[in-house]
């Protein structure tokens, strides 16, 4: 028995590894879900910290405008060039405005704005909350009868969910304008015809679905920042790790949920 059993553990190592990783993954999903649930519950019940929420809206939204705007204008412009030259292969250059508008409002506007926020905001939240964890400020807050989920987490979740759709709306407008600029200046489109084509083609739900996506992405960005910061351990290195994890996991979750939401929206 002993001789036969001895080689088995080594042979089973890959299985054990897969099993352990799967268990760790499930545990992680569970703990994120629990964290999200506590955050949402705190957002929907008093006491609220409105001052904190407003402050976060300013930090997340207003100060992200320049990055989001720049990203959108260049993407819109590049998209216009690409679709114009690609569409030329089957004489479809003239529908370029419609395709640019569709691509920006449904897909690129929300995703790019969210990715910029993942880099800028998720990282900043993870670093700030993580530093508060490392220096016992979160412990201190608890002993001062203030729930960190209400004071720290809920305001960031609410602010990001409200603000990212607004940023996306701005990105939509600036992105389509970028396409317009290239079309008019470089490709010789008539400016008013371009605008008319875009406006008559685009439907409310093209923009609306993008804004709904943006709200979900906003939740993801703030949640990942708060979750990784709140659970940071091990001093400055732990804070650095939390920041990296927040950015990477928000980006992945943004893409994954983008696909899921798009599936849902295009089926309806």
């Amino acid at each position: 028995m002993g001789a036969a059993a001895a080689p088995l553990p080594a042979a089973l190592n890959p299985v054990r590894f897969v099993g352990r990783s799967a268990l760790a993954g499930v545990r992680r999903v569970g703990s994120v879900a629990l964290f999200a649930g506590r955050g949402v519950a705190a957002a929907f019940s008093a006491p609220w910290f409105l001052g904190q929420t407003l402050r976060q809206m300013l930090a997340i939204g207003f100060f992200s405008l320049p990055v989001v705007g720049l990203t959108a204008v260049f993407t819109g412009a590049a998209l216009a060039l690409n679709i114009f030259s690609g569409g030329g292969r089957f004489n479809a250059e003239q529908v370029m405005p419609q395709i640019v508008a569709l691509g920006i409002t449904r897909e690129l506007g929300p995703v790019l704005a969210a990715l910029m926020l993942a880099g800028r905001v998720s990282a900043a939240i993870a670093a700030e909350v993580g530093a508060m964890r490392a220096t016992e400020q979160i412990d201190a807050m608890v002993t001062l009868s203030t729930d960190p989920f209400r004071y720290l987490v809920a305001p960031r979740l609410v602010a990001a969910v409200l603000v990212l759709p607004l940023l996306t709306a701005v990105a939509d407008i600036i992105g389509v304008s970028g396409g317009w600029l290239v079309a008019v200046r470089v490709l010789g489109f008539n400016p008013t015809v371009y605008v008319r084509n875009t406006m008559t083609f685009i439907q409310e739900w093209d923009v609306g679905s993008g804004l709904v996506k943006a709200a979900v992405f906003g939740f993801i960005v703030a949640l990942m920042g708060c979750y990784h910061g709140y659970n940071a351990s091990g001093g400055a290195r732990g804070v650095g790790r939390a920041t990296t994890h927040a950015v990477v996991s928000s980006a992945i979750l943004i893409f994954a949920s983008d696909y899921l939401l798009t599936t849902l929206f295009t089926r309806a």
């Binding site: 220096t135 016992e136 400020q137 412990d139 201190a140 002993t143």
Partner: peptide
């Protein structure tokens, strides 16, 4: 309850 933490734990914001 009132607590003083070892590192003071003041809110830096």
């Amino acid at each position: 309850v009132g607590v003083l933490f070892q590192g003071a734990a003041l809110f830096d914001s």
